[in-house]
């Protein structure tokens, strides 16, 4: 049994690598993009707000799997062709930026309007107000919701199988088919759990760091 697990490890780890890559890149790009979406939703430019509303509606209103299929198989029809990897990444980033955008918007809106007035009186520019006053408080408020999304993202990465990318779950399924055994799938489950445990600890530390008023 132990032998078998050790023999499975290399293919699992290579699957895990793809999973982690998709996870990390999606996170790194979609969080800043989400902040921009949230700021854009507060904008006074009405068409921009309308566009963002449609964007969020589409991204939250259709399955992520469908979005990946659409970007990889659908866009080439109108002459936009991406490789498998970028197509999957774009779908993930657009989808997650929409969710993060809504979380950040909730965070921004929960901050008392009086703080904007106070900042103005003190001579802060709007940009500086956002960066120095709103953003730090917002991060504190949204951390638990972000942690939720991030953990969902770990598991959502499994969807890239649809464009033929081999990630962790796929590696498990391949081994499971080859050896007619459930062990590889159990291993996959354990690896996901380890990832989630690590993330949970990271977010706990972050929450502690931002809990400066308690």
């Amino acid at each position: 049994m132990i032998d078998y697990i050790i023999r499975l490890m290399p293919s699992m780890l290579s699957g895990l690598q793809t999973t982690l890559e998709i996870f990390a890149i999606t996170l790194i790009v979609s969080i800043p993009l989400g902040i921009l979406v949230a700021i854009g939703r507060q904008s006074k430019i009405k068409p921009l707000v309308a566009v963002l509303q449609v964007y969020i509606w589409v991204m939250r209103g259709t399955p992520l799997l469908l979005q990946i299929v659409f970007i990889f198989f659908g866009l080439p029809i109108i002459g936009i062709t991406f490789d498998r990897y970028p197509a999957a990444l774009i779908a993930f980033i657009l989808n997650y930026a929409a969710y993060f955008g809504e979380i950040f918007r909730g965070g921004i809106e929960s901050i008392d309007k009086g703080q904007y007035d106070a900042a103005k009186v003190l001579g802060f520019t709007p940009a500086k107000t956002f960066k120095r006053i709103i953003l730090p408080q917002m991060i504190k408020i949204v951390l638990p919701s972000i942690a939720n999304e991030v953990i969902t993202l770990v598991k959502d990465t499994a969807l890239v199988y649809v464009v033929g990318l081999g990630e962790l779950l796929r590696a498990g399924k391949i081994a499971s088919n080859r050896d007619a055994s459930l062990t590889p799938l159990v291993m996959v489950g354990v690896l996901y759990l380890v990832l989630t445990a690590l993330l949970t600890v990271v977010f706990q530390k972050l929450e502690e760091k931002y809990a400066y008023y308690q």
């Binding site: 009405k46 068409p47 707000v49 309308a50 566009v51 509303q53 449609v54 659908g74 029809i77 109108i78 002459g79």
Partner: peptide
């Protein structure tokens, strides 16, 4: 305002759909 936003949104969606619709000549 809401009405106007909805109209703008609708136009955008129709625009995207028609873009997809006209593109079959690539095939």
């Amino acid at each position: 305002n809401l009405k106007r936003n909805l109209i703008v949104a609708l136009i955008l969606v129709l625009g995207i759909l028609s873009l997809v619709g006209c593109s079959n000549n690539n095939e």
